[in-house]
Amino acid sequence: MTLTAERVSMTFGGLVALDDVTLAVPGNRITGLIGPNGAGKTTLFNCLTGLYAPTSGRILLDGRPLAADPAQAMRGGVARTFQNIRLFPGMSALDNVLVGRHTRIKQGLLAALLHGPGFRKSEAAATERARAELEFVGLGPEGHMPARSLAYGDQRRLEIARALAGDPAVLMLDEPTAGMNGTETADISALITAIRDRGIAVVVIEHDTKFIFSLCDHVYVLVRGRMLVDGPPATVRTDPRVIEAYLGATECSK
């Protein structure tokens, strides 16, 4: 399964957030998306997951256009996490994951009211799957805990488990290691590789270039709304334009 953005532009009033961006996410690969702050990375994510309708251009999932409707994107197999953790804080970890599975559960309202055998079967299957995802990200024993009382790193993992529960073909991670130390970053790195090994394409936004270059199969560099360079990590790392964009930006901010 491939997710592609075809010449996508997005403007908010007079502000051009994305300008003619084209990107392809092949299955079974880890794709990195880097760029300075305000480059439009999260806006691109929002377009790819159906939260925003691009001003022009198309989002295609396996060649079929994807409507600007997150429910349809989830059903189609595009799931995501958020830059600043956005769990359902008052719900248990398990219920958070079950909400991630929302589009895959078939239950009528009447069945939900009466709790018949069919309902119980579907509920048991969903719960089993949700538990398996919690186990997968390393939160097996934490299922009953309210999401808000989990440790910071565990909350990041829970967000990933919630996204995985929707049976995604493409998993989009918005800064999964923000605010983590070296050990935790390495753990997340291993987790992302394990997700790829399940046959799920992963897209990662990160500021930590070392993390991106060691993890990704292909890297896109977005600067001020435009796709500057893309290619394998080794080429991108040494590209003079990337170095200028990054170091230049760093110099300016000093």
Binding site: L51, P70, R80, F82, T103, Q107, A111, A112, E123
Partner: peptide, 23 residues
């Protein structure tokens, strides 16, 4: 304790994210 009830709870907790999760 059903898909509907969890969707309601998700809307109560964070409506935007509930939408992003396909509710």
């Amino acid at each position: 304790h059903s898909r509907t009830g969890r969707a309601w709870a998700a809307i109560r907790e964070d409506e935007d994210v509930a939408r992003a999760m396909g509710v």
